[in-house]
């Protein structure tokens, strides 16, 4: 019997895809983002309509946004492009996100190659899950894919299991 590396279901030898979760059994994990066990991820979902109004009047010009990876304390300055993609580099398939979380345990942490993106709208920063396998969590709440949410200073962002902190204030 062979065991599915993702959901643990047993299959007869020769089986190519797990009937339960669709994982390609012969390679199982590498490169591919596999669903994490549900109990390891927060359950509650963010209400997409609860976000604060976008671009409150009178805001000063945008302050640069930085992201801190909690586990490795790595700080990443967001590039100044209008849209910043966060994910995992996969050279073989030509996937090069603006921010690559591979060095921060992205694969084991369930970060998808295309995981989420951060963009500016008015004077606010928004985060949007782009259909990641294991979800993007904002302060412990799962975001509905493709619905942008406003992010603020000190917000906790979690991609799969990898925790990030948002820093929006001028650097000394």
């Amino acid at each position: 019997m062979i065991e599915c590396p993702s959901c643990g279901r047993k299959h007869r030898p020769g089986t190519l895809f797990c009937s339960e979760c669709g994982v390609y059994l012969p390679t199982g994990g590498p490169l591919r983002t596999e669903p994490l066990p549900e109990e390891e991820l927060p359950i509650s979902r963010a209400n997409p309509w609860a976000s604060e109004p976008i671009g409150a009047a009178g805001e000063p010009a945008l302050i640069p946004l930085r992201i801190k990876v909690v586990s490795t304390s790595r700080e990443i300055q967001l590039p100044t492009t209008s849209e910043v993609h966060i994910g995992r580099t996969d050279a073989a398939h030509g996937i090069f996100p603006d921010i690559d979380l591979s060095p921060d345990g992205g694969l084991d942490g369930g970060v998808s190659r295309h995981h989420c993106k951060i963009h500016q709208r008015g004077s606010a920063y928004m985060v949007e899950d782009v259909g990641s396998a294991n979800g993007t969590f904002l302060n412990g709440q799962r975001l509905t894919p493709y619905l942008p949410h406003v992010i603020k200073d000190k917000d906790k962002l979690q991609l799969g299991r990898v925790a990030l902190e948002i820093i929006i204030h001028a650097q000394e």
């Binding site: 299959h11 007869r12 030898p13 020769g14 089986t15 190519l16």
Partner: peptide, 16 residues
């Protein structure tokens, strides 16, 4: 076929 060579050790196996 998904495989043209099979092991004769398995009691039962899947071929596509």
């Amino acid at each position: 076929l998904s495989q043209t060579q099979l092991s004769s050790q398995h009691e039962e196996q899947v071929v596509y």
